[in-house]
């Protein structure tokens, strides 16, 4: 039996085989699934913020930011035996939960850009995405085959 890994806000976890990775209710945060089809090694990260360099408080976790969480998770997957060249990404989230005229608060958009930039830097292609708009998403990721389900209150369930 595989393990069901629940990934909270500013967290990431890895799995393999018939493990299932789930992150609930992504709002403006981003869920990033990394998957190596050749070894079945999978990782799911739930970031809150784009950029760790703006943060001066040294106590905060690296798992919170796009620019630190994704390289760390990739390193863990490599240590487990994943092949970096084979890894592909699926991303979801980055919604604007409350519409506002003030773009200062559009963190969803900034998160999407930051995750895409971090993946490009790691040379990981994005093969599917469900980002932006104005609703929350739960992401379920099966390590067995790399399938990702997005469920939301407005759109129901869909596979990406």
């Amino acid at each position: 039996m595989g393990v069901k890994h629940i990934i909270g806000i500013s967290d990431w976890k890895v799995g393999r085989g018939d493990d299932v990775l789930v992150t609930y209710a992504l709002g403006s945060c981003i869920g990033t699934c990394l998957y190596d089809r050749t070894t079945g090694i999978a990782g799911l990260s739930h970031i809150m913020l784009p950029d760790s360099t703006a943060i001066i408080d040294g106590h905060t976790t690296r798992m919170k930011f796009a620019d630190t969480a994704l390289p760390d998770m990739l390193d863990r997957m490599k240590a487990m035996g994943a092949s970096p060249m084979a890894i592909k990404a699926k991303i979801a989230g980055g919604a604007v939960m409350f519409q506002t005229a003030n773009s200062r608060f559009n963190i969803g958009e900034r998160n999407i850009e930051a995750v895409k930039a971090a993946l490009m830097k790691l040379r990981i292609p994005i093969i599917a995405e469900d980002v932006g708009l104005n609703y929350g998403r739960t992401m379920t990721f099966w390590a067995e085959n790399g399938a990702v389900e997005i469920s939301s209150t407005v759109m129901g369930k869909k596979m990406i």
């Binding site: 209710a25 709002g27 403006s28 913020l49 407005v154």
Partner: peptide, 24 residues
């Protein structure tokens, strides 16, 4: 005011992100 009806976690991500920038 701004309003939405959705999953609580997604709604609470907004204060979490804005208030949580400096800590956890």
């Amino acid at each position: 005011p701004m309003m939405t009806i959705d999953m609580l976690g997604a709604i609470m991500s907004v204060p979490a992100i804005e208030m949580g920038e400096m800590g956890d």
